[in-house]
């Protein structure tokens, strides 16, 4: 159990490092899928099989595919990779990296000393989650529906192909 956790964790970290350092977006996304899958394993070990399934279905499936679709729509060419190479230079990443390392070491220090002790691994299965989701948190589910609606309406409005700018009097005729 423990070993699996550490291996999956290591895979997740390594593949995430690969995600943020790739020049080609598609490669990065493939690593992202790996990372999500490793995380799904972690979830499973932590006793959240339902979350593990969702992680693969929604994150690795839906979201990544959505991003790939958009990349395909944008039709990025080889120059894009060169562009990325030019952008990712040491003087760009040294500063942020130092900042992040400071933040990370603080968090590591805090988490390892800060009294969040205990063990994990007890299984909380789909049934429990379902009961709680449709029991006390039913209003939350309703609200997440509203959340998705806001996302859909917004994406619809923003993503629509732009109309040719025509004069307002001519607009009716064109339609």
């Amino acid at each position: 159990m423990q070993l699996t956790f550490y291996i999956a964790g290591a895979v997740a970290i390594i593949s995430t490092i690969m995600v943020i350092t790739r020049f080609n977006v598609i490669h990065a996304l493939l690593y992202l899928v790996v990372s999500f899958m490793a995380l799904a394993v972690v979830f499973f070990i932590l006793g959240a099989p339902f979350a593990a399934a969702l992680e693969i279905i929604i994150y690795a499936g839906a979201i990544v595919v959505l991003i790939i679709f958009v990349i395909m729509m944008l039709n990025l060419k080889e120059e894009a990779v060169d562009q990325e190479k030019k952008w990712l230079t040491p003087d760009v990443y040294v500063g942020p990296a130092i900042l992040t390392i400071i933040l990370l070491s603080e968090l590591i220090y805090i988490i390892s000393l800060g009294g969040a002790s205990g063990v994990v691994g007890q299984v909380v299965d789909v049934k429990d989650v379902g009961k709680s989701l449709y029991g006390p948190y039913i209003l939350g589910v309703e609200l997440s529906g509203m959340l998705l609606m806001a996302g859909i309406v917004g994406a619809y409005h923003l993503g629509r192909k732009k109309k040719k700018v025509v004069h307002r009097f001519l607009e009716k005729i064109e339609e």
Partner: peptide, 17 residues
Amino acid sequence: EIQVTSGLLLAAALFML
């Protein structure tokens, strides 16, 4: 057994990445 801290540390590491 897996400690809570290890889980949180993994999360923190991914977060920072």
